[in-house]
Design a binder for these strands. Structure first.
Lengths: 344, 344
DNA sequence: GGGTGGCACTCACGGAGAGCCAGTGCTAAC
DNA sequence: GTTAGCACTGGCTCTCCGTGAGTGCCACCC
């Protein structure tokens, strides 16, 4: 725990550095932040803070910048989350009051909204199929060899997939397959439609072999933990406005990471499972080497009590944490609300 | 038309500049490309070519680089398209021999494939709904107020959409609506399901007012020329490897363009409608200012005789046009083949 | 003893100048 | 028409200050 004055000094340094991207010196603080002491005193405090690991010095004759630890202390103990800017609040309200009926569009719009309000890069991981409850599947025959398999959950996802039919199957038999599957599976949490549960059904339906196998395969593909993710990035180019990424090589390695959906989705998994405050990962706390200069603010949104998706903001460590957290809270609240409209 | 020797000189300059990204001088050409004449002669030829507008000089004491016109002459008259590299050919073959059943996945994979083989940025605009023929729609009731509207075309697209029902409608009536619409519209080219054609049906079905309106709205949204595009970018970060984009500001403006799906899709519209060779746009031939240093190679792919989608490669003007064209031809051939598998 | 003013020291940054060199344009000769 | 020779150009790199922001330390003061 830092004493009052050290806290104020650290806070001043973080906030000034966030605003200017320049190492901040003792005189600047004495002038801009009225701590009522002289630069020399602040120099001493800064020397202490550096020794304790909260500050770093790019080179001997430069000002100080916060270390990862310094940012960590700042977000944990010093940061305030200001009211969301009225213009942003208005934008958020307006975005969600439009009735968006397609889940994909909703995700995309959310990502755009977050990136526009924070001027950073936003990630949204869409409602996960596996968190929903199975409702019903249907086959729509196309010709004698193929049908569309349609799969609906009670949170309103509709997925479809063309499956090949065993040649001999009749329209009636097809309906029978659907009926049996529906009876066995309706209302089940999709997550627990595990291989074993499905296998029971499979036994019962041995004779529809190939068709069933494809259906199951589709269900598996879409429901396993590694299910296809609905992931959307917004405002990737906002990164380019950050002075820390003027360097093209750094930029390239970061952008390569962002092109990898797997990795990005994992980033957001770090969200603390029970907190309803956004989680913040700072610099080297992120395991990805290329992101050592970045921070990630992430949160989840819920449908009922169920976590069904996540949002994140990726930016330089030097970001306005308070503002970002405020925006994120406002957006996830609205997003949960919007998602609940899909339910039936 | 350039005489033989001028052609050889221009070709040498383009190819050397493509390979090295450095302005090329008369000595380099004399040494590396055996034209059988001395540097001085080549200097004279270069001076001529510059006067004719095929070459430019970054500054007085530097070598020459091709102008837009120079590239244009090169791709029109001098370029050869070499055999696709065996490793790439193998990769292309393998990608498409996997049975990909989801259209979205196919597009994504194609974009990835193109960007990996060309080391440039790839765009794929997916099969357009509006080019298909209507086959059938279905309602699956969810509760007494909502149903899923499912829409199938004969080229294998399945789209779905939650619609709100007029409260009084019964299951049977719902089926009747679908039936009437199906009868009226089946087999129609989707493009010609214009507002007027739909209005006729609408008259007939006045009593289902709200539901019908929503259905029509959905059809319109998805079928109008401005329909939602299935567009996918691959290898965006490949741009960063190009020395011409070491400059972060140039890079930013280019990436902003690429974030705009509308603009990117328009780029590919320029594809010449009847040629089966890829179309090449060079530098300022592209109307987008931010892309003045880029070239776009684009082509379409067909299902039957119908153009249903487009692919493009975006790179610096200094790209290996021959190789890119070769790869693109191979990929579009395979893509058309793969798409035809969806048909029924 | 904590706070402060003063002072020497450090180091990144930017501009000026020198040398280098790839490449040109021109001229004269073949 | 081709080529060799040569003076000239202009960007690039390296080095060398000068400048200024900022530090660390010391002595002094309340």
């Amino acid at each position: 725990m830092l004493d009052e004055r050290k806290s104020r000094v650290l806070q001043a340094i973080v906030e000034d550095y966030v605003a200017t991207a320049e190492p901040v010196g003792s005189r600047t603080i004495a002038r801009k932040y009225s701590l009522g002491v002289s630069p020399a005193t602040i120099r001493n405090e800064m020397a202490d803070l550096e020794e304790m690991g909260y500050l770093e010095q790019p080179h001997t004759s430069a000002g100080r910048i916060p270390s990862d630890l310094g940012y960590r202390y700042y977000v944990d103990c010093l940061m305030e989350t200001p009211e969301v800017d009225p213009a942003d609040a208005e934008l958020i309200r307006r975005t969600f009051e439009r009735k968006i009926r397609e889940v994909d569009v909703l995700i995309r719009e959310t990502a755009r909204l977050l990136s526009e309000t924070t001027h950073l890069t936003a990630v949204v991981v869409g409602p996960q199929l596996s968190k929903a409850h199975f409702r019903e599947l249907r086959f729509i025959p196309l010709d004698d060899r193929r049908a569309v398999l349609i799969y609906i959950t009670d949170s309103g996802f509709v997925e479809n997939h063309v499956v090949e039919l065993p040649v001999e199957i009749t329209m009636l038999e097809l309906e029978r397959v659907a009926e049996i599957l529906n009876q066995q599976l309706r209302g089940q949490p999709v997550e627990s439609l595990s291989r074993t549960a499905l296998r029971i059904v499979q036994d019962e339906l041995k004779r529809y072999g190939a068709l069933l196998e494809q259906t199951l395969e589709f269900l598996k593909e879409n429901l396993e933990p590694g299910e296809k993710r609905r992931l959307y990035l917004g405002g990737t180019t906002n990164i380019l406005n950050q002075p820390e990424f003027r360097n093209v090589d750094k930029l390239r390695s970061l952008l390569s990471v962002l092109e990898n959906d797997e990795l990005v989705a994992e980033l957001l998994e770090a969200t603390e499972p029970d907190s309803d405050k956004p989680t913040i990962q700072i610099g080297e706390e992120i395991k990805i080497r290329e992101m050592a200069d970045c921070s990630v603010v992430s949160a989840y949104y819920t449908l009922g009590n169920e976590v069904i998706g996540r949002v994140g903001i990726i930016g330089p460590k030097r970001m306005e944490y308070g503002r970002v957290v405020g925006i994120m809270e406002a957006v996830t609240r609205q997003l949960a609300l919007a998602t609940s409209r899909y339910r039936f």
